[in-house]
């Protein structure tokens, strides 16, 4: 095989990194197997389950569908960036059971919490539909999302 590795630099969890990646590597593989961040999970490898959700330049994406070299010069935020205090409400709501979907769920939920005005147009159940969970039946997930009352004036 004559594949050449590609050197890329990007921001990972607020810190710069530079490394050489296999051109076949997905962002998911890069995080899990090369960068030692296995918090991001693979549930399907086809963009359906959302277990691999990370933030890319501030928006949730499925890292199983991102070629690793596409994150060059971009910012990636993973579940490892999550503070324990940020999940207290989820702990009480029963957001996690087996935990396999949980890192993805938390990443999407954190983004909704940071963008509450989306909930004026879409329901939380609609916005969370890209995160499949087979354990909770979703009530625990929806109840775990801290939704500040949106400021209607600004809208």
């Amino acid at each position: 095989m004559t594949d050449s590795r590609i050197e890329i630099s990007f921001t990972l969890n607020r810190r710069p990194v530079t490394l050489r990646v296999d051109p076949r590597s997905r962002l998911l593989d890069l995080l899990r197997y090369d960068l030692g961040l296995p918090g991001t999970k693979e549930g399907c490898g086809e963009g359906e389950c959302g277990a691999c959700t990370v933030h890319l330049d501030g928006v949730p994406v499925n890292s199983c569908l991102v070629p690793a070299w596409q994150v060059r010069d971009r910012a990636v935020l993973t579940i490892e960036d999550t503070a324990e205090a940020a999940v207290e409400r989820m702990l009480d709501a029963g957001t996690t059971q087996c935990g396999a979907c949980t890192p993805g769920v938390v990443m999407t939920a954190r983004w909704l919490e940071a963008n509450p005005r989306l909930l004026e147009r879409f329901s939380a159940r609609h916005l969370m539909a890209g995160n499949l969970c087979r354990c909770t039946g979703y009530d625990g997930i929806i109840d775990g999302i801290e939704i500040p009352v949106p400021d209607r004036e600004e809208a």
Binding site: R24, R26, G45, G47, L65, W69, Q70
Partner: peptide
């Protein structure tokens, strides 16, 4: 390749696509 949401599906088994040369438009 732009967003990759069609091309990267089931990527580990997409052997034929992995043999091809790619042109990244995303940047």
């Amino acid at each position: 390749v732009a967003g990759g949401t069609d091309l990267l599906v089931h990527w580990p088994d997409a052997h034929a696509l992995q043999e091809r040369d790619w042109l990244d438009l995303s940047a």
